[in-house]
Design a protein around this nucleic acid. Structure first.
Ligand SMILES: [Mn+2]
Ligand SMILES: [Mn+2]
Ligand SMILES: [Zn+2]
Ligand SMILES: [Zn+2]
Lengths: 159, 159
DNA sequence: GTCATTGTTGAAAGTGATTATCAATATTCT
DNA sequence: AGAATATTGATAATCACTTTCAACAATGAC
């Protein structure tokens, strides 16, 4: 199987883009852990490793990573998107706690069938889907007054 | 069945909030059409009807409308959320064209079962889900070089 | 390898949706 | 009515993200 770096090289070649060490550094960091990430976190992770990558370079790369299928948007929270690398992974969906943000990944079968049905019924060319299931995790449903896990920042949405 | 206004009155009473004519004006406008809306569109619709409601009042109301179950986020596009009223409507999901924004609504059965399964498997209290299916509509998949619908004017979103 | 072309970079400034501030006002409760 | 306090609109602030631009560097042709 091709590495994510090779996939991106092919993508740039095909699209007339250019590959750079900065971009490969970012991609490597994205695939270094399985964590979801946002731009700021990614920027700080790189900074901590003494990689001098500017935020605009990250912002500029993200649309290409989405288009090349290396990453996808995982969810929108705290005023910005959180992403995850998906190349080399099975498609999965998220079950999220509305209170503490705890996220569980799960596979779903029924949706493959649904895509086909929708494609036929509405004459769409279906390329994918995004399913989020919301609720309260075991801790949060039992004791809704306990301190929030992610405290210091309410799950308030802002830009 | 209670009206959306009555639902909101009960909500404010229960939460120690206050109801105001501004809030009822906003809610009535949201339920006046079945269109998806964003804050700016809603503000302009009210303005056109000579209702003097400030944008902050709309922004401040939205979290309450979400919490009371009168509206929900439909999708995030062009840098902001688009909402839809849901009180009095069956739950539905969206099939969206990635190119022109055309949106089709559909009902899905398999997901009710999925919610129950997830609740049991992960001990979550599941409160809801959001499913978006993406692809290209009949027009956009056939001739991907035709002018975008959005270029002509505002894309007619339907419920 | 050299060279021309042109995409990319980082710093800085700009954009725009959303939120905070605050004094005036209005709602709710007693 | 009167006290308590939530809401309003105008305004300023915030902050995620984009644009600008000059220096730089990846790519491909020769
Ligand atoms: Mn994930
Ligand atoms: Mn809808
Ligand atoms: Zn939780
Ligand atoms: Zn389309």
């Amino acid at each position: 199987m091709k590495s994510e770096i090779e996939v991106f090289r092919e993508f740039t070649r095909k699209k007339g883009l250019r590959n750079t060490p900065e971009r490969e550094t970012i991609i490597k960091e994205i695939f270094a852990t399985h964590d979801h990430f946002d731009v700021d976190e990614l920027y700080l992770r790189l900074k901590n490793k003494k990689k001098k990558i500017s935020k605009p370079s990250i912002y500029r790369l993200i649309p290409h990573l989405l288009e090349s299928g290396l990453i996808q948007e995982a969810y929108f929270e705290d005023g910005h998107f959180h992403y995850e690398h998906i190349y080399g992974h099975e498609h999965h969906c998220h079950l999220r706690c509305l209170r503490c943000g705890k996220t569980i990944e799960f596979q779903e079968k029924p949706l493959e069938k649904l895509e086909g049905k929708l494609a036929e019924e509405y004459d769409f060319s279906v390329t994918g889907h995004k399913l989020e299931v919301f609720g309260f995790c075991p801790q949060c449903k039992v004791d809704p007054h306990v301190a929030k896990v992610e405290d210091a920042g309410d799950p308030r949405r802002q830009r």
